[in-house]
Simulated scan of single mutants.
Amino acid sequence: MASNLWSEDQFSCPVCLELLKDPVTIPCGHSYCMGCIKNCWDHTDHTGVYSCPQCRKTFIPRPDLRRNTMLAEVVEELKKTGLNPPPAQSYAGPEDVPCDFCTGRKFKAVKSCLTCLASYCETHVKPHYEGAAFKRHKLVNATGNLEQKLCAEHQKVLEVFCRTDQMFICLLCTHKEHKSHDTDLS
């Protein structure tokens, strides 16, 4: 059965991360919801240069978009055979940290990068695990207001409380400026 051979990710729009709605395939071969790619390109209309959000291939002039009927039929068949959109609990609620890279309705972030100062859902964090360029990035459990949780001097996480100064400091600060202070490491 087809639903056993394909995963939902293969039929999800890379922009909204939901199952393709009115799918279109652009000249580089990537597929999007008609509304999502139109919205992306409408924001760059003033430049006259349009690019694929995935591979960054550029197009001049703006490509005409036509519904990919075969892909639309496949998505509809897969919906009938049990392939469903992501469960509602994967979307960010008021108490969750939203993914900084999701557009439209945001998914719940699972990791935050202290190097990028951004939070990522399961889909958008993948490059941090797979790409060589991200090997030195520091991932932590999803946390909001990242800039406020980093030491301004050392760019490290504020994880130690200095009782003397009544403030959070990073581990490097305990060896320097706060060396003789009463900290929760003492």
Rank of each mutant, 00 (worst) to 15 (best):
Q10K: 10
C116P: 04
P14C: 04
L172R: 14
Q148P: 01
L117Q: 15
L139Q: 04
L117I: 09
T44F: 13
R66I: 15
E76S: 14
P27R: 06
G131M: 10
T81H: 12
H43C: 07
C36I: 05
T58W: 00
E76F: 09
E8W: 05
M34A: 06
H137S: 00
Y120P: 05
D42R: 03
T58C: 03
D45K: 14
N84P: 03
H124W: 07
P94H: 09
V49H: 11
D9M: 09
F161E: 11
D9Q: 10
C55E: 05
L150D: 09
S119F: 07
R105L: 14
K135D: 05
S90P: 02
T58M: 03
S51R: 09
T183Y: 08
A142G: 00
G82N: 05
N39Q: 15
V140P: 01
S180G: 11
L20Q: 03
N68Y: 05
G131K: 09
G35H: 11
G104F: 06
G82H: 06
T143P: 05
V74N: 08
M34F: 13
V110T: 14
L150H: 08
F101V: 10
L65S: 01
T47M: 06
C16Q: 01
L172Q: 14
S90T: 13
P27T: 04
E76M: 09
L146A: 02
H46K: 14
S119Y: 02
P98T: 07
P86G: 03
C151S: 02
W6L: 15
H124D: 12
K106G: 01
T115G: 09
E153P: 01
T69Y: 10
G29P: 06
V157K: 15
R56F: 07
T183P: 11
F107S: 07
K126Q: 14
K111A: 05
K138I: 15
K38F: 08
R105E: 14
L5C: 12
H124Y: 07
S51T: 09
R67W: 06
K138C: 13
H178T: 04
K108V: 06
H128C: 04
A142S: 10
K111H: 12
C52G: 04
E159F: 04
F161S: 07
K126F: 09
K111G: 02
C151M: 00
G104I: 07
V15Y: 00
V125E: 07
D22Y: 09
C40P: 02
N68S: 01
D9E: 12
L150I: 14
F107C: 04
T58P: 00
A92S: 13
G48D: 03
E147G: 10
C36A: 05
R56Q: 13
C113M: 03
D182L: 08
L5S: 14
V140L: 01
C36V: 02
V24L: 06
R163V: 11
E8I: 13
C13H: 02
C116W: 02
P98Q: 07
A72V: 00
A72C: 01
L20P: 01
K80R: 13
E130P: 00
